[in-house]
Design a protein around this nucleic acid. Structure first.
Lengths: 189, 189
DNA sequence: ATTACTTGACTAACCGGTTAGTTGACAATC
DNA sequence: GATTGTCAACTAACCGGTTAGTCAAGTAAT
């Protein structure tokens, strides 16, 4: 393609194609040529716009993080439904969780924690602590522990071994109901 | 090394080295040369003994699966402590869980479920169902759902985002206690 | 002597990254 | 309002190191 004067659009297409490729194959397994082809762009543009393969992954990851933080705002007064919404989000965007997992496995060790996520987590912990102080939810666990439990249970189906998916309930509604119910039981004052 | 007449030992060293390499870098990221060097063996031995890279991963994975199934036998009468033992196992062998995750991300889609795991899961579900019939644990959830919850919570700390590890409790005992307590709460009749 | 096992040397393909050069939009100059 | 220059955006071709996988030849044990 000749220069369109719309570099933003090209970047967008590259990030989108890279999102799919990285989610499917991880960082080591992703192929720069495949990404360029899927985006209908020249491979060198990746290096022009993002520096290198890892820079491209960073761009993709930052996009997903900001999307995830925007979606599903916490409601400490109704944590079970919050967990339900997280479940819905992970069902709607299964690639997002895969990407986060690749990030954890392949990059997290040599990458500092992301400040935006730290801040978001702290805000959630604070909200939960206030709900505890108001007597809405149990004080048996710390606010951070409750958040950890909620996040874990909301994504439980995405993390279980493939074999468990054979035995466990197949339909989405039942799975969602379990998530909501488990959180309800755990946070009861 | 000259032929030692002990091919079993060479296989063992290769599988052990491959275990570390695959756990650290995944299938796509693992380097066959690094594995051979770490095992003090020639690269060709991998192809002689295991066929190809994927065959080596299969050998490693089967070893881990059989170890995991042998370790931590289920005790349906005391699921909280079972969860605690699973937690202990995942802390003692963090690489095992990483390997399982790589397997899920990189191979599970084009790999049939592993029969040994299916059988083991079914046995656990049956045990839980009996404990339910005996009135020891709640019947609010199906046996399979309870197993899913227990497995999820036992490994919760290994799956949470790196950022959560900053806010969440740092010491092992506190984390273990949360796992045990959460399961206790969930399965109460 | 045969079998089982091990090796160094080799290769074809792949893959991330680079480079020299092109294109179109836009603006300054005459 | 043509001409010229500049720059970001883009491309085709290429490069060198890496990687999974192969093979002929050799060695120890039986």
């Amino acid at each position: 393609m000749p220069p369109t004067g719309d570099a933003q659009e090209t970047r967008r297409r590259l990030v989108e194609a890279a999102y799919r490729e990285f989610a499917a194959h991880g960082i080591a397994g992703a192929r720069v040529d495949r990404i360029a082809a899927a985006a209908g762009a020249n491979k060198a543009l990746i290096y022009f716009h993002f520096g290198n393969k890892d820079g491209l992954f960073t761009a993709v990851f930052e996009m997903i993080v900001s999307q995830a933080l925007a979606e599903a705002p916490i409601d400490a007064a109704d944590l079970p439904e919050y967990a339900g919404r997280l479940f819905d989000a992970s069902e709607a965007h299964p690639d997002a969780l895969r990407l986060a997992t690749w990030h954890r496995l392949e990059r997290a060790a040599d990458q500092p924690p992301i400040q935006a996520v730290l801040d978001a987590n702290q805000a959630k912990v604070d909200t939960i602590a206030r709900a505890q102080a108001a007597g809405l939810i149990t004080t048996r666990y710390t606010a951070a522990e409750i958040l950890a439990l909620v996040l874990t249970i909301a994504n439980m189906w995405s993390v279980l071994s493939p074999e468990m998916h054979v035995t466990a309930p197949q339909d989405r509604a039942t799975r969602r109901a379990l998530v909501v119910s488990a959180v309800t039981t755990l946070i009861q004052p």
